[in-house]
Design a protein around this nucleic acid. Structure first.
Length: 218
DNA sequence: CATTTGATGTTCT
DNA sequence: GAACATCAAATGC
């Protein structure tokens, strides 16, 4: 019995888990590199996964928009942890959002995953998000994708290299397919171009009309 | 299409 | 007491 041992240990159809070293470089580079990766979440109800199509970089203790500006507190503790761990937080008292922690231990930075293209478990996602009318609305926002995949506080601080929550290597994304804009929904350091998205994906969140969209330059 | 508003509770000033 | 890395519904073009 070496295969199919348990539902939560099911093999993935996608790439290998991204190693901790993947998350160590400067956060804006990790945010760009995460486009095309696969985020996968196993729960007792089943597996749901999606391809990353939109991210934002939060650069650390000196980034006024990063939660770590307030220092090491119970809430921000996971941001100071090892690269490749999950930071899951509650926003507006009702929605969970998911980040992958970046940079070496003690450097509190992270990438917010803002949108996915659904891959596995679409029927499960529809049950979890009954108000989504179209498949494009299942995971096209940071709180929507957490609801659809079943990501919550139980995942906060966990490593992303093994189930239940895993980030896997995915299909490479060409620079020409990437657009950069300011980050969404923040008031401090709002002008910095740190949001990365796939130009032609119908699964990205809406870009405010006045935002500058520019091609990605490596 | 764009813009506004209400819901909800934790964190921080 | 205010702010908040949001969402969905409702209103105005």
């Amino acid at each position: 019995m070496t295969e199919n041992a348990a539902p939560t240990a099911r093999r993935s159809r996608f790439g290998a888990p991204l190693p901790a070293a993947f998350f160590e470089p400067p956060t804006e580079l990790v945010a760009r590199a995460l486009l095309g990766a696969v985020l996968e979440c196993d729960t007792p109800e089943g597996r749901a996964s999606g391809r990353v199509v939109e991210t934002e970089a939060y650069l650390g203790a000196h980034d006024e928009a990063c939660h770590a500006v307030v220092g090491h507190t119970p809430r921000t503790a996971p941001l100071f942890g090892a690269p490749g761990t999950a930071y899951v937080y509650l926003i507006y008292g009702m929605h969970w959002c998911f980040n992958a922690v970046t940079r070496p231990q003690g450097h509190p930075s992270a990438v917010l995953v803002r949108a996915l293209e659904p891959l596995e478990g679409v029927a499960l996602m529809r049950r979890r998000r009954p108000r989504a009318r179209r498949d494009e609305d299942l995971t096209n926002g940071p709180a929507k994708l957490c609801a659809a995949l079943g990501i919550g506080p139980e995942h906060n601080g966990r490593g992303l290299q093994r189930p239940p929550l895993v980030l896997r290597a995915g299909t490479p994304v060409d620079d020409a397919a990437v657009l950069v804009t300011p980050r969404i929904g923040i008031t401090r350091a709002a002008e910095l171009p740190l949001r990365f998205l796939l130009r032609d994906s119908p699964f990205v969140s809406r870009t405010p009309p006045h935002f500058v969209r520019k091609p990605y330059a490596a």
